[in-house]
Design a binder for these strands. Sequence first.
RNA 1: GGCGCGGUAGCCAAGUGGUAAGGCAGAGGUCUGCAAAACCUUUAUUCGCCGGUUCGAUCCCGGCCCGCGCCUCCA
Length: 466
Amino acid sequence: MSLRFYNTLTQELEEFSPAEGKTVRMYTCGPTVYHYVHIGNFRTFTFQDILRRTLIARGYVMDHVMNITDVEDKIIRNAMAAGQTLKEYTSQYTQAFLDDSALLRLQRPERLVFATEHIDDMAAAIGKLAASSHTYVSEGSTYFRIGSFPEYGKLSHTNFSGNIAGARVQVDEYDKDDARDFVLWKAQKPGEPGWETPLGPGRPGWHIECSVMAMKYLGETIDIHTGGVDLIFPHHENEIAQSEALTGKRFVRYWMHAQHLMVEGQKMSKSLGNFYTLRDIVERGYQPESIRYLLASSQYNKQLNFTFDGLKAAATSIERLRNFDLRLKNDRLAAGLNAEMEERSARALADFHAGLDDDLNTADALAAIFEYVREANTALDAGQFLAGNVASAGRLLAEFDAIFEVLKPTGTAGSLSDAEIAGLVEERAKAKKSKNFARADGIRNELLEKGVVLEDTKDGVRWKRK
RNA sequence: GGCGCGGUAGCCAAGUGGUAAGGCAGAGGUCUGCAAAACCUUUAUUCGCCGGUUCGAUCCCGGCCCGCGCCUCCA
């Protein structure tokens, strides 16, 4: 089976292959760093992480660019209110975003690019658009004239050709020729930060940064462009207009959009007060990998309703997989190889990848893993899982974890060392031998309080960090 | 109104024209000093509703109802 992705542009499931060789040129719309990003944002970033990891597992080499929007209305407003420079203000949230991403085990894109470091590139691009009469100036700001781009609307599948669309909002949009026109360069207002360019003093509009940085680093036609569904219109529509007006070439081959994370059936938003940051979740005692699993475990193309019950279920599901992993490492197995188990692991592996290949159907992929784990546990209980079967089972888990990466617990600072734990485990074993169960249970509880779980198995004591 | 995503067991969630994956939760059992883990059994005669096509539809067609998102900054 081949890799297939749903392309927003064509509204079809398409077989994926990069334009050139094994390199995938991918652009991701990153955060606007005026605040801590919430877990809804991270749903989209987690989708992108699963996407890259799937491509890498397929043998592709990523050239992935993510932007950080570090100049924008809210940033300017907040920074001015805080008496900080843009840089001072945004750097703290950029760092928070990177920290949270690391906690969620999101792979760093090959390049992280900042809007404020590409002002000249943007000014040059806008100048070029002006030279080919795609723009006009109004009150010191430069606008893109969508009437100059006949294909406008092709991504969001909206027909703007009539005159009805513009008529409705013309009242309050006096400075634009057409209500759908968007700003490329905003004139500087008194007291606001700005840049001196041939376009006059001001700052870039939001859309131009993505077009310019994507093409600067990835070329005029890129393979994959991702974001949340809310970016389809107008942001990505505008990116297409600018980019294709500039180059005359197709800007993006595959457009992929993640559906939103919901909370209690509603979109996460500040006005509803129903948004959570990763920090909020971690403070409540949940592991970051539980959120990662929750966000990754259903297909990106479907709305996902966030609940704490779901988060708990995610944590338990991870535990099940970790326990199986521990069994593989700790159980004493008879020598030999059970051919049937080999077949089952091979089938699970194939099903796992088939699920991912099918437009990142992670729910389906996961089912293959769990089904195998149950089969293997049954065989382990029955003594039919042999030493020779460990390798293929381990490989299956490794390939699973190369995508989902949830098996390793997030280390908690100040916990006991392995040696200390081993000492207590030893002491408990002695207590048990002399039937001093009170002491034995005492040690177990003591360790539990420090985040270490002891489990007696027929092959001896096994422990794990919670 | 336009465009899009959905409506499958208590919750989350796959799926196929031939009789419903997987996870979590619940119940009973096996194992165990206890616990944990693991396993077994059990939990949808039914897949929003109504028609149609078919030997047969949850899956195809038509209509309808409901939820959500975008259409203004937004992952």
